[in-house]
Structure formats: structure tokens, C-alpha cells
Amino acid sequence: MFEAIAFYTFSILVIGMFGIVVFSKNALYAMSALAGGMIFISGFFFLLDADFLGVVQIVVYTGAVMALYAFGMMFFDSTRDVKENIKFKKIIYTLSVLSAIFTIFILMAPIFSTKIEAIYPTLQGVGNVQMIGLILFTKYLVPFEVAAIMLLAAMIAGIVLVKVKMEETPTNIEVARGEK
């Protein structure tokens, strides 16, 4: 009962938040709504006994990603709204709904057809974080390390890209070097 109440509450909240993100004209509102939506999503993770994911969701998304967006927005003139002339609204909605329905259909298809056997079943009497750690550092060690390298590369890329001075776009730099 509690589960159902929580699920529906969170659902409404998340959908509402994301609705604001998508339809709001103000970038600042949108960002705030997104941050809120992220936190509510972590609620689903806790409901689904994925404590670790919930924590990561809050820390990474709300803490890091949204902070990054916030910083990013400072660069842009957020007071000046981007004029958005949107065409083909019906097409957009039809397409989105269709793709969502199809995706769900495909996701659910195996449930009706064959039984899926768990490759890495949840262990009894072990905490979620411990389980994740066990699997992540044994079976998924290599992808984990690769992800780490990817994050490092992304960080370096972000720093380099933003660091370039106003006048010196990467192409300009190359041109300048070539001239010298």
C-alpha cells in the first residue's frame, strides 16, 4: 500500500517536473525543475531496493551534473530567451508517443514470451551497496575501468574546450599556428 502511494506520488511529481522542463520557456525554471525531477527519480530507486543507485543519482545528477548546468548557464545570457518557433507540433507528439509505446512494447515482450533467468541474481542477506560492489569489481571490472577513463577524458575535454579564450576558437588557433 505504501509502495503504491509512494509510486504514484513520485510519478506525478516526476512527470510534472519534467513537464515543466520540456514546456517552460524560462531556462532557469527548466533547470530547477530538472534538478527536482532528478531527486524524485532517486525516490524510485529507493523503492526498487537500489539504494546505491539512488544515492548515486542524487550525488551525480543533482550534485554534479546540475551544478555543471548551472555554471554553464552563467555563460549564456539566460535573460534573453531563445525565440522558439515550433512547427509540426502534431508530428512531434505523435512521434514521441509512438516511439514510447513501441519501446515499452519491446521491453515487455520477453515477459510474455519467455522466462528470463538472472545472470547475477540478488543475494539474500547482503546489502545493495555490497552486492553492487561485488559485481562491479568482479564481473564488470573492465567496463568499470573503461568508464573511469571515459570520465577522465570527458573532464579533460570539458576543461580544454571552455578554457579557450573568446577570440581563439580552436580553428582560429590552428590558423594562427600555421601562420607562425
Binding site: L53, V56, Q57, V60, Y61, A64, V65, L68, Y69, G72, F75, A147, M150, L151, A153, A154, M155, A157, G158, I159, V160, L161, V162, V164, T169, P170
Partner: peptide, 17 residues
Amino acid sequence: IAIAASEVAVGLGLLVL
């Protein structure tokens, strides 16, 4: 989540540029 984080890092950098 990891991919989303790196996407934001790179994407925002490009956007700023």
C-alpha cells in the same frame, strides 16, 4: 549515469564554445 555525466561535461564545453 557515468555516460550522462561525461556527456554533460563535453557537451557543455562545446556549447560554451
